[in-house]
Write a protein that binds this DNA or RNA. Structure first.
Lengths: 353, 353
DNA sequence: TCTGTTATTGCAATCGATTGCAGAGCCGGA
DNA sequence: TCCGGCTCTGCAATCGATTGCAATAACAGA
């Protein structure tokens, strides 16, 4: 009776409307609430086994699928998680995203990825996610002192950082041990006999930039190198071009470093460019170490020696952390740090002179 | 000050519940329906200007945000689009995704990306997206003859393919002109004097694999090369390892090709591996051409000559196509094909002997 | 002054699922 | 035979927003 009515009323009525819990109920001669219970693992124990089975069967028969929007409206949980990424196209990010999404997926959550590119304010993007009712946010974008964080606090939205930390260390995060990574790099070079090691640092308002720089300074100090033998130039973005510029400045110094540690593989590739521009050989004249071990850096020439960080694990850890926060808002803030590993390839060699 | 307060009141009680349309209504002394109209661009003309302004102000004042779940429930449109990707970590995909997401975002849609990795059946993933009420799907995974397509048809769900086409050409799609791409590659090599050109083809159940192969065959024929001088080996996946195996088979042939066209950059890198394994130089002994121009292939050694496809545009076109379908289900199916471009780098050189 | 518009606003049903509460039926024990 | 207690199911309210319809007011024209 209802159907015909509808098709008269509207243009798109032809497509059979998705079956609802009511349809299943009608087919089984039970009340919708019973169907709801039978189909919910948590409430299933409240309904008789045979009835539950009948309902299950009917649901399958007519291809019933739960409507998440309706459920979300009633329960206040959407099962949606937002992920803010600085740039999806950055080759470093997909593995992290994959780790996040896989874990969340397994737990029944769906992931909305938002690229915070040139687009309007990050605030606004967050607001749109809030409008969608996300249950939490994974931020891969946060700078050391960031408004977005406060914004989320105000909205009482669970948040975790991935591959970043905030200045105050207030937010839970999953990140690589930046200091340890730099130590691996510096010790590798020192072990090869290098005495003058430069650093192309990343932007200092990003935690990886600041922390890797600090790690570099500490490692170099511990290795007994005087500061003037460990010059630092800061790149203003994590790009190949910025790496090139910074490296050129480093190479222009009075005492040229025999090795350069870059804060990031992209920067390291920029260092390659700079060396080429100056007619210097790598690793013959200058050894280079990167950071992140992003895909295909083993294929560049020379294959890049770099610090591998556990990106997938990082993503998964972040997801787990977020879920824990969502489940119990009183949980202690956690900082998961993942151990890096140095991958020695062809861009570093012994220095003997 | 804020934190303690919150923790005193209880784990989540303190967080003031998100203001609803009712709160705004109460604050303005009007009925919720009036608020709804005032805040909806399409219905705004129904409410007096001064009232609308008052409502706007109040909404801003208390930080009101529309609840998409509720709206979606009522209107039947979620503003969510699902994207099925074969593998997010594949460096070829992010640019496409970025194109899709940016366009959809600008139109007010949010994108849920699902990695169809080792995970359970694709059907199931689609069902979960349907449960979330997605308004449409972008499929980057479809094989030539695929159940998923039928599944979506059954669900009356608008679908577009990206970087793929279906065997029957029934579905709208945005893809690169594979035949033209292969023609560019072959003509480039023929122009360099190559007379024996091999092809490492991609999996034949994927449209790019089949179409690029066909394009190769046609181009080679048109160039006047006999088929026996244009051997083909099929890789069983788009991976570096599979490319290596196929290339090894190609190199083992009686008359070794002097150039190899790979269906994909990843396969081309596998060809590099095979050449290295056989002690052959590229491009000295064998020239290599890839396809896609994925990030950083300009940095490998030698820099890869490859066919660049317009990935970002492809994503954007797919998004536009999908939105058109959603707006008007009767729209004619469209196949958008994007023109490729050859990027000549260091992996190809003249053949003179 | 009366009638017919037109411009605004309110009312109430609705989307689909969840859940506290109440009622029905049944069992065993006294 | 009656009662407490248990299991299972139904009822109805609810989540937040939208929208067809009705109601009111204001206003123009006759």
């Amino acid at each position: 009776m209802k159907r015909p009515m509808r098709s008269v009323t509207g243009p798109r009525a032809a497509a059979s409307p998705r079956p609802t819990i009511k349809d299943v109920a009608a087919r089984c001669g039970v009340h919708p609430s019973t169907v709801s219970r039978a189909l919910s693992p948590a409430m299933k124990h409240l309904v008789a086994d045979d009835v539950a089975a009948r309902i299950q069967a009917a649901a399958n028969a007519i291809g019933y699928r739960l409507n998440m929007a309706a459920k979300g409206l009633r329960t206040g949980r959407s099962g949606l998680i937002g992920v803010l990424a600085p740039d999806i196209a950055d080759p470093g990010f997909p593995p992290v995203l994959s780790g996040i999404a896989d874990h969340l997926n397994a737990e029944g959550y769906a992931t909305i990825v938002v690229d915070v590119g040139s687009k309007g304010s990050e605030q606004d993007l967050v607001d749109r996610l809030i409008a969608r009712g996300v249950d939490g946010l994974v931020l891969a974008t946060v700078t050391l002192r960031d408004d977005v964080v406060q914004h989320c606090q105000d909205a009482a939205l669970p948040v975790v950082l991935v591959n970043r930390v905030d200045a105050a260390g207030l937010l839970p995060s999953a990140a690589s041990d930046d200091a340890a990574g730099m130590r691996l790099a510096v010790e590798h070079l020192v072990g090869l006999g290098h005495q003058r090691i430069g650093h192309v640092a990343g932007p200092q308002h990003i935690s990886t930039g600041a922390r890797r720089r600090a790690g570099f300074e500490a490692s170099v100090r511990d290795a007994g190198l005087p500061a003037r033998h460990a010059p630092i130039e800061i790149a203003d973005a994590y790009t190949r071009a910025a790496g090139r510029e910074a490296a050129l400045r480093l190479l222009a110094r009075r005492t040229r470093p025999t090795a350069i540690v870059a804060a990031n593989d992209l920067l390291a590739l920029g260092v390659y460019d700079a060396l080429a521009a100056r007619g210097l050989a790598c690793p013959g004249d200058v050894s280079v170490v990167g950071h992140n071990d992003m895909p295909f850096v083993d294929l560049v020439s020379p294959p890049l020696t770099t610090v591998r960080i556990a990106q997938r694990d990082m993503g998964e850890a972040a997801a787990r952390l977020l879920l824990a926060r969502i489940a119990d808002r009183g949980v202690v803030d956690d900082h998961i740090v993942l151990a890096p590993q140095i991958i020695i390839r062809g861009s570093t060699s012994a220095w003997e002179r």
